[in-house]
């Protein structure tokens, strides 16, 4: 299965230069936090939220095959 991970804001800088989205191939379903730490080597500290299909999810969310996961960096906003 494959999952698309997309970074926004300051999280982009943890991705390879110039990329804001990576495709991760998985042998079995994994929670988002494990995909980040174990498959991508990206720490989850500072990860404010995970959004899948426009819905807020926890870092323990297990994405389905083909889903896009958006990583939202901390944001106080206006």
């Amino acid at each position: 299965m494959k999952v698309i991970i997309r970074a926004t804001g300051t999280f982009r800088e943890r991705f390879p230069q110039g990329q804001d989205r990576v495709v991760v191939r998985l042998e079995r379903p994994l929670p988002v936090k494990e995909i980040l730490t174990e498959k991508l080597g990206i720490g989850t500290e500072g990860l404010a939220a995970v959004v899948v299909d426009g819905q807020y999810k926890s870092r323990d969310y297990v994405p389905a095959d083909g889903e896009e996961v958006i990583l939202v960096s901390p944001l106080g906003g206006g």
Partner: peptide, 8 residues
């Protein structure tokens, strides 16, 4: 501890 990893 966290500002560098959050909003800077």
């Amino acid at each position: 501890a966290l500002d560098d990893r959050q909003c800077r």
